[in-house]
């Protein structure tokens, strides 16, 4: 219990420290926070429930467009916009998941990719509503909770995104330890056995997928409100794939892994791309290789692995 509180405190401190240390990079830090929310959603469905997906961007994009359109046509309140994004993400996940959750493995992965592609194509065609390839413009979110206006430097945006990320993290931490979370781990470990103890794994997986969709939708909504623009890129395969890499880098099934992986991926990307705009992918590739080979459980397992190594144990991380 104390250790958990300490970890939460550490996240708060890291958020404050990043703000103080990089006051001129708030836009970049905010992008990291939004990405963490997306990767957390992936950790729920992939890390916890073992649902393989390469299409999490579908729900992210749905949330982004929903929040953008909501702000333009209905109400500029950011929190209401987040809710709209969450509902859109959850709806898309529930509808597509009703079919997808009956499949597994490669079929499932292909279908998740297909859903995101279909969404991108719909957004592309519906120019009148979404702005098509030009993107959705003219999003002017109101004050956060009626108090804080979005400013040019991005101070409000940063703390707003940080608060949302922290709340999502807390909610997932509660869910992960709940009976529902335990049952998702059970489905991940042995679906046959879960059926044998009388569980409809289809319904559990669908529930998890829908929750993950809502959180991805929140991430998309955050992005729409803070960048005040939604582009077709929100649905891109690259986004889904990068989120997956970040999660694997940090470690699946552990929420801290989602944070760690995202921060490291995006920081390395940022620095490497600035130094060598043509070969930065090489650095990311090498990093992923090292982690997958030596730390199959991700970077969160690094301390335990080092401890074992120091004790003269066997293969680190295994």
């Amino acid at each position: 219990m104390n250790r958990r509180l300490l970890s939460l405190l550490l996240i708060l401190l890291a958020g404050g420290a990043a703000y103080l240390l990089f006051p001129y990079n708030l836009a970049f830090l905010t992008r990291i926070l939004i990405m963490i929310v997306l990767v957390l959603s992936l950790d729920l469905i992939l890390g916890l429930a073992g649902i393989a997906t390469l299409g999490q961007a579908a729900m992210y994009g749905a949330g982004a467009y929903a929040a953008g359109l909501f702000a333009i046509h209905v109400w500029a309140d950011p929190v209401a916009g987040l809710l709209a994004g969450a509902v859109a993400g959850a709806l898309l996940a529930a509808v597509s998941g009703a079919v997808l959750m009956r499949t597994q493995g490669l079929t499932l992965i292909m279908l998740t990719i297909a859903v995101a592609q279909i969404c991108a194509e719909i957004a592309n065609r519906a120019r009148g509503v979404t702005g098509g390839a030009d993107g959705l413009r003219g999003i002017r979110p109101g004050k956060v909770l009626g108090l804080w206006e979005f400013d040019f430097i991005g101070i409000t945006g940063y703390w707003y995104a940080f608060a949302v990320m922290f709340l999502v993290f807390l909610a997932l931490a509660v869910i992960a330890r709940s009976p529902f979370g335990l049952s998702l781990r059970g489905i991940h470990e042995s679906p046959e056995r879960m059926v044998a103890i009388g569980v409809s794994i289809y319904r559990r997986r669908l529930a998890a997928y829908t929750m993950g969709g809502a959180i991805a939708g929140i991430a998309g909504a955050l992005s729409a409100q803070i960048t005040q623009l939604v582009s077709l890129e929100s649905f891109s395969f690259t986004l889904s794939a990068e989120a997956l890499i970040m999660l694997i880098l940090g470690g699946t099934g552990r929420l801290y892994g989602a944070i760690l992986g995202t921060v490291i991926f995006m920081a390395v990307h940022h620095v490497a791309a600035a130094n060598d705009p043509f070969n930065w992918l090489f650095v990311i590739g090498a990093l992923v290789l090292v982690v997958v080979f030596f730390l199959p459980r991700g970077l969160v397992a690094l301390p335990a692995s080092l401890k074992r190594l120091a004790k003269g144990g066997r293969h680190a991380g295994s």
């Binding site: 335990l182 049952s183 781990r185 042995s190 056995r193």
Partner: peptide, 25 residues
């Protein structure tokens, strides 16, 4: 066919939770 990554206690907690209809909480 067990939940091999879970502890023995968690392996037993799961079926009890499900039997009592608490598994979705």
């Amino acid at each position: 066919t067990l939940f091999s990554g879970l502890t023995v206690r968690e392996n037993l907690r799961l079926p009890v939770l499900e039997r009592l209809g608490q598994g979705g909480r």
